[in-house]
Amino acid sequence: MTPPTLAHVACPDAHGGHRMAYWQWGDAAAPHLVVCTHGLSRQGRDFDVLARALLARAAAQGQALRVVCPDVVGRGESDWLKDPMGYQFPTYVGDMLVLLNTLQAQAPIATFDWVGTSMGGLIGMTLAGMPDLPLPAPLHRLVLNDVGPVIEWQALERIGQYLGKAGTFDSVEAAAARMREISAGFGPHSDEQWLALSRPMLRPVPGSSWRMHYDPAIAVPYGALTQQSAADGEAALWQLYDRVQAETLVIRGADSDLLSPATAQAMAARGPRPRVVEFAGVGHAPTLVAADQVATVLDFLLPAP
């Protein structure tokens, strides 16, 4: 299958603007758009397996499909911000609106779906839960991958222990081993699968070493988060969630420390009343690489006619 193309959009900020990169798969003129957005320290190539599977399913159904996987600013091939305090949701949501309007200008969007892992899910929930935002089309289907309105504090503390502190590595294999250690919640992967997830996370450094792809400064606003401020934000997130009109699927790692069983159960009973699917042996967050995880997303986004 043809690899994705890399493109950029120019996004405004208070310091002269920045560029956000995105990876585009499939038919750039297709009226059906699926946007897949990654977690806090990840990047858009996380969705390579899912994107290929979505395109294969669409082709089998005789549909044209465009899959777009952005690198949220500060990650992957996107610019790093001049002001670290810009690494927060108002920037991320604003950048996604620029991206969506750019894609709409390239080819009109008739059907708009969103797959979001962790941070990417919260971005999608914001887009779906704020009806006055200038979306090119209403959000049709929303996948929230291991995230909800309540984010458990112990998970935030765990992530804070490594965010922005990766340093450099002597080899891709050494970097992959370290990422595997801190990402145990992703669940079992073959060595080949793990290397495929790890290579796009690395950038060469002069002197034959490697560093993580993201700006270490994304940890600055994260480090200012307190247990009280996290709790204070829950009410606003529930308000967003309760306004979601999109058909919604919630995916949860059965061992997740970020999305609790109680929160997933509460989500199922209110707002868009999603179906909740749990995957055993996985924590935070399912990578959507395993065949059963991929099939769950495919059946939701591209159900049999």
Rank of each mutant, 00 (worst) to 15 (best):
H8G: 02
P12M: 11
R19F: 07
Y22F: 15
Y22G: 01
W25V: 04
W25A: 04
G26R: 11
G26K: 10
L33K: 03
V35T: 14
V49W: 01
L54R: 03
L54F: 04
L55N: 06
C69M: 00
R75M: 08
F89K: 05
P90G: 14
V93N: 05
G94P: 08
G94E: 09
T102Q: 15
A107L: 10
A110D: 11
W114I: 06
S118Y: 03
L133M: 13
L144N: 02
D146E: 03
Q154N: 14
Q154H: 12
R158Y: 12
Q161V: 00
L163P: 12
G164H: 08
A176V: 09
R178Q: 13
E181Y: 04
G185T: 07
W194Y: 14
L197G: 08
S198Q: 07
S208N: 15
W210V: 09
W210M: 08
R211S: 13
Y214E: 10
D215G: 02
I218L: 09
Q227W: 00
A235P: 04
A236M: 08
L237D: 14
L237C: 13
R243M: 06
V244W: 02
A264D: 07
Q265K: 13
M267C: 04
R275Q: 13
V276C: 10
T287K: 08
L288Y: 05
L288V: 05
A291H: 09
V294H: 06
T296P: 05
L298P: 07
L298I: 07
L301N: 04
